[in-house]
């Protein structure tokens, strides 16, 4: 396998590497990712285990009107949450969505004559929001103001209008984050902004190495299909004319020597094919006429002389 062939193969492999690298570069995942979940409760809860997930830089919740984000000891948050319907964020479902569940508040129905005297409590996970806080059976167009009670249970509080964001580094380990709509309206969404580990350190080297190999292969391939010798001769002539230096003599048998000697197209013999009997008779006749030792002589006109003989001829010409 020649060097040129090896270079061409390397070029093909380089081209594949380059294409793969470019595809990976164009489609690779961003380091900074936003993951969200829609909410249909006035309260959203993120436990200490969720807040401890690595990479979370910021948590934001959207909604209408004033929003409040608070941290508390988990036991305190759990006690507070018994009175409200809330969405619990359980972690990542994927990089595009969060895993959540909704827990309804403990509802104690108002006693009535027909109803059972025992209160009914629902604190199981459900996809449906809790029943109205009001025991009244008549719908009301004006929502009742929500009384979230004392704020003494909260350790830290952040407030926002339509959106509240909390930086992950400002959350104390082991605490629960509770975010609610001050007006009691359902929240819009909860968003995690995180920086994730993307294994893309190999893409740039792949592109650069692939490109280099592809270029080498392209040159090797081009040199096989394009006759650059006239161009080389012109360059050498230009160099001689510009520098005035005496060009070195080409090495015997080198390509440069052959190039300088002219066309390398093979010469084709125009003689008729030889007759063996005729050749033998002619040889015998010469031997008898000269009495010299026979020697080998080319019977082919225009055949390539031996290198030594050819040098002698060229030297004579010079």
């Amino acid at each position: 396998m020649t060097l040129r062939t090896t270079a061409v193969i390397a070029g093909v492999l380089g081209l594949l590497m380059l294409i793969a690298g470019l595809i990976a570069n164009a489609t690779r995942a961003d380091r900074e990712v936003m993951t969200q979940a829609t909410l249909d409760t006035p309260v959203v809860v993120l436990g200490p285990d969720v807040l401890a997930l690595p990479g979370i830089e910021r948590i934001a919740v959207t909604g209408d009107g004033p929003l409040a984000a608070n941290t508390a000891r988990p036991v305190d948050a759990d006690a507070w949450l018994k009175n409200f319907t809330a969405t619990y964020v359980l972690g990542y479902d994927s990089w595009e969505s969060l895993d959540t569940r909704t827990a309804a508040r403990v509802v104690v129905e108002a006693p009535s004559e027909d109803a059972s005297p025992s209160p009914e409590a629902t604190d199981e996970a459900t996809d449906e929001t809790a029943a109205s806080a009001s025991p009244s059976s008549e719908p009301s167009s004006v929502p009742e103001p929500v009384d979230y009670g004392s704020t003494d249970v909260w350790r830290a509080t952040w407030n926002g209008e339509d959106r509240v964001a909390v930086t992950g580094s400002r959350l104390a380990a082991g605490e629960t984050l509770v975010i609610y709509s001050v007006a009691g309206d359902n929240l819009g969404s909860v968003e995690f902004y995180a920086e994730r580990n993307v294994n893309d350190g190999w893409i740039s080297p792949l592109i650069w190495i692939g490109a280099a190999l592809a270029i080498v292969g392209a040159f090797a391939f081009a040199s096989g299909i394009v006759d650059v010798r006239p161009l080389q001769a012109r360059v050498e002539g230009w160099r001689r004319a510009r520098g005035g230096a005496v060009a070195e003599q080409p090495k015997p048998g080198s390509r440069r020597e052959r190039r300088l000697a002219g066309s390398t197209l093979p010469e084709v013999s125009l003689d008729e094919p030889r007759d063996e009997a005729f050749e033998a008779a002619l040889k015998a006749q010469r031997e008898s006429a000269t009495g010299e030792q026979p020697h080998v002589a080319s019977a082919t006109r225009g055949a390539e002389p031996a290198p030594e003989a050819r040098d002698a001829e060229e030297g004579g010409q010079k």
Partner: peptide, 15 residues
């Protein structure tokens, strides 16, 4: 390239 999102493991203690 795509690393899986982290999963919840253990609950850190309150400081």
């Amino acid at each position: 390239c795509a690393a899986e999102p982290p999963v919840v493991t253990e609950t850190p203690a309150t400081v």
